[in-house]
C-alpha cells in the first residue's frame, strides 16, 4: 500500500488553502507545532506544504501554474537511508514517510537528501519536520469519516486534490494517474515520488479554423 495525494494542475488555482489548512491542523497535531519566527516583525515560518507559482512562456502565450508541494512520500525515499539514527523512516504498511522526533539529532542531512525541499528545520526543538500525510488524522478512529483524510485534501476549494492508495489499481488516485498522464517531479533524481500531478488539458476553441477564416475573409478583413 502506498498512500498518496494526486493534484490536478488543471484545477489548482493556487489559493493556498491547502498550505494553511496543513499548518492549521498540524500545529496542534501529533507532529506539531509548526512554528514561526518573529511573528510581529519580519516573520518567517515553517510550512509543510508550499504553493509554488510559476510563469512560463513569453507574452501573450503566457502560462501561469500553481504547484502545491509537500512531501512526496517517495517510494525510494532518499531521506530515509541517509538518516543516521533511523528517525526518518518509511512505514511498511502504508508507505508514509515519517520522522520520529525522539531519535532525530537535527543533523539536517535528510534535508539535503530530499530533492524537493519539503523538509523544514525547527531550531527550537532541534528536529526536522515535514508533511506526515496527516497520519494522525488517517488513523484516528474517533474522527468523522470526512476528517479521516489529509487536511489539505479536505479543504481544497477546487477539489484539485485526491487522496488514496496508489498501489491499488482500482483506487481513484491510481485511475487518475494512469488515465490522465499523471507525473512526478524531478524523476531523474530517482526518488520515485508517490505524489503525482495531473497536467493541464486546455479546451480548444469551439469554432473550427475554416469557418473562422471564411467569416473573416467575407466580412471583417
Amino acid at each position: 500500500m502506498q498512500l498518496t495525494i494526486v493534484t490536478d494542475l488543471n484545477k489548482c488555482v493556487g489559493c493556498k488553502s491547502c498550505q494553511v489548512s496543513c499548518k492549521e491542523h498540524n500545529t496542534s497535531g501529533a507532529y506539531g507545532p509548526v512554528p514561526d519566527a518573529h511573528p510581529r516583525a519580519d516573520v518567517d515560518g515553517m510550512w509543510w506544504n508550499r504553493i509554488v507559482t510559476m510563469e512560463s512562456g513569453a507574452y501573450p502565450n503566457t502560462s501561469v501554474m500553481y504547484l502545491p508541494k509537500a512531501c512526496m512520500h517517495c517510494y525510494d525515499a532518499p531521506c530515509v537511508p541517509v538518516c543516521p539514527t533511523g528517525a526518518s523512516y518509511k512505514r511498511e504498511d502504508n508507505g508514509v514517510v515519517l520522522i520520529d522526533y525522539d531519535s532525530c539529532i537535527g543533523c539536517q542531512l535528510c534535508m539535503w537528501a530530499c530533492p524537493y525541499g519539503v523538509r523544514e528545520f525547527d531550531e527550537e526543538e532541534g528536529v526536522v519536520k515535514k508533511c506526515t500525510l496527516c497520519i494522525d488524522r488517517l488513523e484516528d478512529e474517533s474522527l468523522p469519516e470526512v476528517e479521516r483524510q489529509p487536511a489539505c485534501v479536505q479543504s481544497c476549494p477546487t477539489h484539485a486534490r485526491t487522496f488514496g492508495d496508489l498501489d491499488d489499481p482500482t483506487s481513484e488516485v491510481a485511475r487518475l494517474v494512469s488515465t490522465r498522464q499523471g507525473f512526478g517531479l524531478l524523476p531523474e533524481l530517482g526518488a520515485r515520488p508517490s505524489v503525482h500531478y495531473l497536467p493541464r488539458r486546455p479546451e480548444p476553441p469551439r469554432v473550427d479554423k475554416e469557418t473562422l477564416e471564411k467569416v473573416m475573409a467575407e466580412r471583417y478583413e
Binding site: 493556487g14 493556498k16 498550505q19 519566527a37 518567517d44 515560518g45 515553517m46 510550512w47 506544504n49 508550499r50 504553493i51 509554488v52 507559482t53 510559476m54 510563469e55 512560463s56 512562456g57 513569453a58 502565450n61 502560462s63 501561469v64 501554474m65 504547484l67 508541494k69 534535508m111 525541499g117 523544514e120 528545520f121 525547527d122 531550531e123 507525473f183 517531479l185 500531478y197 497536467p199
Partner: peptide, 23 residues
C-alpha cells in the same frame, strides 16, 4: 514542473520570501 514552455519565472515560493530559516 513538467512545464511546456521555457523560460520560466518563479513568482512565488509559497511565502513572500524564500524560507531562510528552514530551507
Amino acid at each position: 514542473f513538467g512545464l511546456p514552455f521555457a523560460p520560466y519565472r518563479l513568482q512565488d515560493s509559497g511565502t513572500t520570501r524564500a524560507p531562510y530559516r528552514t530551507q
